[in-house]
Design a protein around this nucleic acid. Structure first.
Lengths: 125, 125
DNA sequence: TCCTGACATTGACATCTGTCGATCTGAACG
DNA sequence: CGTTCAGATCGACAGATGTCAATGTCAGGA
């Protein structure tokens, strides 16, 4: 994933945009946007964090370290990546940050992946 | 993506398995499997290749280099990654390899991402 | 006002990944 | 056979990523 640098784009927003994969070739820009969100999803620890948050509805960071067995700073790093990808949002309650899923972002990515049915056929040159 | 090594698992099969994210915490194994497929998707060049293949129905490698502007060896690398993730399959016709989408694998991943609705709420400790 | 606890940030490090040029392999065709 | 061509593999390299320990920040409670 050389081209995609999450640091540059502070948030992928809800704009992982564009039409399903089979609706026509993706532009370079569209593919970079989508890859950003998919890259945030493509880590075992982050997937487990997401499943915990999605299952619980709302969780504070303090309840995330133990189940995945990573240090506090690592968890903080991962929640940041997920938040920048627009997959979760955090709300501060006193000392704690409560995280919850942003279903719309998941739906957007999901919409891309379905409808990837073959259509016509192109002969090789 | 430190833990996921596509080289070790020759194919992710159609077993990116398990229930939707919100159906309960993912096991470590499940998360690694899913991350494998998502990592294959999380690259702009591979997304564009997929969109080209999905749009065309069936394409030979020789028609993939030019649209994405990468060398032959790089394309070969990417098609390999996609094939190992079970997202495409290649069939040899004489000298050419024809690639096509495996819709089931996309559906499997997609099924994970939807249904990620918040449910109950967990109090911080 | 000072301490404590919850997170964020930083720095360092080993590992992984995308890319290319060069080389290898194996099918088609004289 | 020997040549040609599609595509796989190899070797190298720059840049990205996951991880942790250490340190910074800032809200609440004593």
């Amino acid at each position: 994933m050389a081209v995609v640098s999450p640091k540059k784009v502070s948030s992928a927003g809800h704009a992982a945009c564009c039409a399903p994969l089979a609706e026509g070739p993706l532009s370079e820009g569209e593919s970079i946007q989508l890859a950003l969100v998919l890259a945030a999803l493509a880590d075992p620890v982050r997937l487990r964090l997401l499943s915990i948050i999605a299952t619980s509805g709302e969780v504070c960071s303090c309840n995330l370290e133990e189940p995945v067995g990573r240090s506090q700073s690592t968890i903080s790093h991962h929640t940041r990546v997920l938040a920048e990808a627009g997959l979760i949002v955090g709300k501060k309650h006193g000392r704690w940050t409560w995280w919850r899923i942003v279903p719309e972002q998941f739906a957007t990515v999901s919409r891309f992946l379905v409808g990837s049915k073959p259509r016509s056929t192109v002969r090789p040159r």
